[in-house]
Amino acid sequence: TEELDSELELPAGWEKIEDPVYGIYYVDHINRKTQYENPVLEAKRKKQLE
């Protein structure tokens, strides 16, 4: 659920942004990119696909 997503600790260099226009998204300051999917959940999903 969304509530559990926010409890996950983000990897180093990541920041969660709550924007009133664009909603919640994540900033990867190391690689200078943004995405809507939580990077922790993304990594778990990719691992399940292997």
Rank of each mutant, 00 (worst) to 15 (best):
K46T: 05
I17N: 02
Y25I: 12
E50V: 05
E9F: 03
K46R: 11
N31R: 08
R32P: 02
R45F: 07
P39C: 00
Q48P: 02
E18P: 02
P11L: 05
E2I: 15
K47V: 14
N31M: 03
I17S: 03
I24H: 01
G13T: 00
D5C: 14
N38G: 03
V40E: 07
I30G: 08
D5P: 14
E18V: 11
E7T: 14
Y36A: 11
E9H: 11
E2T: 15
H29G: 06
W14D: 02
A43N: 13
Q48R: 08
A43V: 10
L49G: 11
E7V: 14
Y25G: 06
P11D: 04
N31T: 10
K47L: 13
H29E: 05
E15A: 05
V40M: 13
L4N: 05
L41H: 14
E37D: 10
G13L: 01
E2K: 08
H29A: 08
N38Y: 05
K16N: 00
L4I: 15
N31D: 06
K33T: 09
D28Y: 00
P39H: 00
K47F: 07
K33E: 03
A12G: 12
V27L: 12
V27S: 06
E7Y: 04
D5V: 14
E18A: 13
D19L: 00
L49W: 07
E18Q: 01
K44A: 11
L41N: 10
E3F: 15
I24G: 08
D19F: 01
T34Y: 05
K33H: 03
K46M: 05
L10K: 01
K46W: 05
P39V: 01
K44Y: 12
G23L: 00
L10M: 06
D19C: 13
Q48E: 15
K46P: 12
K44L: 12
G23I: 01
E50G: 06
I24C: 08
Y36W: 11
L41Y: 13
E7F: 07
E15H: 04
E7C: 15
K33R: 13
R32K: 12
D28T: 00
P39I: 00
K16G: 02
Y22W: 09
Y26T: 03
E9S: 11
V21G: 06
D19I: 01
G23K: 01
T34R: 13
E42R: 02
I17D: 01
I24D: 04
Y36F: 06
L8Q: 13
L49D: 15
G13Q: 06
E9I: 06
E42F: 02
